[in-house]
Design a protein around this nucleic acid. Structure first.
Lengths: 341, 341
DNA sequence: CGAGGCCGGGAAAACGCATTCCGCTGCGGG
DNA sequence: CCCGCAGCGGAATGCGTTTTCCCGGCCTCG
C-alpha cells in the first residue's frame, strides 16, 4: 500500500487487464464504446487503486485545462470575498477549478501574478480591483493579457471598462449619482467625501457620480472636505480622524466610496464622541453584509457582488464577442445612518 | 502575431538557435552552466516570444507541482476569508500557487472536492471548516486524504485535531472557558447559547469550553436557552428570533459560538426592540474585523486568523513530523456588548 | 606531445495521459 | 462461401517539459 506514487492510468489498465487506451476510454467517457465487461473491470480497478487522473497530464494531452484564474487585490475585504464566492460558484457549476491569487493592492504584484498565471494556461483570467490606472505597469499588464488572449485565453475585468477586454461593469457612476440625489432629497446640503487613491477606477467613478449628482442641485464639495485614504476599514478610520481634526465645520454627511471605509468612518466618529447618523450622517457604497449590522444601519448603494462574480465567470466562458460589456446596475438603499433632516 | 498557440520552449530554443535542453537550462536556473552568450540569446528569445513555461508540462516532467489546495466552507464568511488570506500570503512567499475550492457547508461536496483536487497533485491540501463529524462521508474523506498523503502529499487540517493529520489547533475550548470565567466575573449569571450543528467540531468545542467554564461557578444553561442554528449571520438572526419568541425570561447574556452569528443576534435583537449590551449582553468568538464596528462593540475571543492561515501553510511545507499539532492560543477581549453588571 | 578530466551542448528518453490509426473478430448479405 | 463492414482492443504518437546520457572540444597535467 505504501507506494510513493499515486496510481497511474497505466496501473489501472494493467490490473484491469486491458490496454491504457481502453482504460482511458471508459474513465473519461469517450465517444467510443467499450464492452460492458471491460467497463466493469476498469471501474473496479480504478476504485481499488483509488485512481485520480493526473490533471496536468490531462491538460497537456488534451491541450487545454479546466482551470480558471482569479486575481483579487485582497481576500479580507468582503467586497472581493463576495465576488470570489460568485466566481467559484459559477466555476464549480461549470466543472472548473479556480485558482486565486492576491495582488495585495500592488500593480507590480498584479503584473507578476498574471505572468505566472499565464503559465498555467487557464481557460480564463478574471481580474478584479486592479488599480493600474496611471501606473507604468499598466502597459505591460495590457500587453501580457493581450498575449494571453491572442493565445486563446479569455480575459474578464471587473469595472475596468476602458480596457480592451470583456468586462463586467458595475454602474458605479450611476449609483453614486442616484445616491447624491437621494441624499439631497433627504435634506442634506453640506457633504464631505472619503475616497481612495486616484489609481483606483472604482473610486474615481463613484466620486465623479456623487459630485455630479450634487451639482445638479448646485451643491459642491469643498476641497477641504475631500480626503483620500487607503481603500480599507483602516483607511476609513484614518480619514474620519483627519476630518474631525480639520474641523467638521457644519458638515452634515460624509460619503465614503465604499462600505468598509464608511464603516471605518462610523466607528472612528464614535470613538471621537460623535454619534453617527445623529451628529453626522454617513453613507457608503456596495451594501456589503455588515452594512446592516452596524448601528445605525448604513445607507449604501447595493451592488449584487455575488452576481457580479457569477456574471464574470459566465462572460469568461461565453465565446460570442457580441457582449463585450455586461452592465450590472446598482440601487440606492437608505437606512438609519442618513435620517431625513 | 496571431498564432493561436502560446510560445513553447521549442520555439524559444529555435529562435535562439540552441537546443531545447539548453533553453530549459537557462530558463529554470538548472545546476548546469550555460555559456553567457547562449544565456543572453535564450533570454532574448524568451522575452521576444513572451514565453511562459507551461506549468502542467513542468509538473509532469518534474513529477511535482507548485500548487497548494485550500478547501474552505464558504468565502463570504470573514473567518475563512482571513484564513485564506494568511494561506495565500504564505504560499506566495514560498512561490506556490493556491487553488481554492468552496465546500459550501456540505460534507459530500467536500469529499468530491478533495477527490478532484487530488488529481491536481498539489503539494498540500489544507482543509478548514469541515463538518464531517458524525457523517458517513467522514470515513471516505479520511481514506481519500490518507491515500493522498501516502502518495507524498501533505494534509493540514484546521481545528480537527482528532483526525490523524497535521493540524493547526485553535484553542477553542480554552478560549470559551476563559470567556465564561470572564463573563461570570463581570456579574453575569443567566446565559443563553447559540450554537451550530453538532457536525461542526469548532462549535462543539466552544460550547463545551463555555459550559464547563460556567460550571466552575455552579452555573449551567437551561436546555431551553440553547438554540442551534446555521453557522452564519442569518443563522444568528434566526436563533435570536427564536430566543425572544421562547421568552428571554431573565437571560442576561447570549453567547454565540462565532462572531458572525453573534452579530446576527445583535441586529435581530435590535430589530426586536432590544438594545444589545443594555437589555441583553452578547458575546461571540473569533474577533473578526467587524466585531469592533458594531455598536456596542462585540465582546469576543481573539483568534489570530491570518496567523492560523500562515501557520497552516508552513506546517504543510515542513517535513518534520515532530510537530503534528500546532496550537494557536486565543484571548478574551471584553467590549461594550458585555458591560459589567 | 598525449591522456585524462572538465565543461558545455545536443539528442533522446521519460513523465501521464488522450487520441489516432491499425488490425482483429464476428456478423450479415450477396 | 466470400466479402464488407461494424465494433472494439491495442500499439503508437504526441503534448511541453526536465533530465539523463553521450559527445566533442579544450585545458591541464604528466
Amino acid at each position: 500500500m505504501a507506494r510513493e506514487h499515486q496510481a497511474t492510468l497505466h496501473d489501472v489498465a494493467r490490473t484491469a487487464g486491458v490496454s491504457q487506451a481502453t482504460a482511458s476510454r471508459v474513465l473519461n467517457g469517450s465517444i467510443r464504446n467499450v464492452r460492458q465487461e471491460n467497463v466493469d473491470r476498469v471501474l473496479a480497478a480504478a476504485a481499488e487503486l483509488n485512481y485520480a487522473p493526473h490533471l496536468s497530464a490531462q491538460a497537456i494531452a488534451r491541450g487545454s485545462t479546466n482551470t480558471v484564474a482569479l486575481v483579487v487585490s485582497g481576500v479580507d475585504d468582503p467586497y472581493f470575498a463576495s465576488i470570489a464566492g460568485g466566481v467559484t460558484q459559477a466555476a464549480e457549476a461549470a466543472g472548473l477549478i479556480v485558482t486565486m491569487a492576491v495582488a495585495d493592492r500592488s500593480p507590480e504584484r498584479e503584473l507578476q501574478i498574471v505572468r505566472t498565471l499565464r503559465g498555467m494556461r487557464p481557460r480564463a483570467i478574471i481580474l478584479t480591483g486592479s488599480r493600474i490606472d496611471g501606473t507604468d505597469t499598466r502597459h505591460a499588464l495590457v500587453e501580457e493579457l493581450d498575449a494571453y488572449r491572442e493565445a486563446g485565453g479569455s480575459v474578464v475585468l471587473i469595472s475596468q471598462h476602458d480596457l480592451p477586454f470583456r468586462t463586467v461593469s458595475i454602474d458605479n457612476y450611476g449609483g453614486a449619482r442616484q445616491l447624491a440625489r437621494a441624499l439631497v432629497g433627504l435634506g442634506y446640503r453640506r457633504f464631505a467625501m472619503v475616497r481612495a487613491g486616484a489609481g483606483l477606477r472604482t473610486s474615481r467613478d463613484r466620486c465623479k457620480g456623487f459630485v455630479e449628482g450634487l451639482s445638479e442641485f448646485g451643491i459642491d464639495i469643498d476641497e477641504r472636505f475631500v480626503v483620500e485614504a487607503e481603500f480599507s476599514r483602516r483607511g476609513g478610520c484614518a480619514a474620519a480622524r483627519e476630518l474631525v481634526q480639520r474641523g467638521l465645520d457644519g458638515t452634515e454627511l460624509v460619503f465614503a466610496v465604499n462600505d468598509v471605509m464608511a464603516i471605518g468612518v462610523m466607528t472612528a466618529f464614535r470613538d471621537a464622541g460623535l454619534v453617527p447618523g445623529q451628529d453626522v450622517a454617513v453613507a457608503g457604497f456596495d451594501d456589503i453584509g455588515p452594512a446592516v449590522d452596524v448601528d445605525p444601519a448604513l445607507t449604501s448603494v447595493t451592488v449584487p457582488l455575488r452576481q457580479v462574480g457569477v456574471r464574470a465567470m459566465q462572460l469568461a466562458l461565453s465565446d460570442d464577442d457580441a457582449s463585450r460589456i455586461v452592465p450590472v446596475s446598482t440601487n440606492v438603499v437608505l437606512r438609519g445612518s442618513t435620517p431625513g433632516r
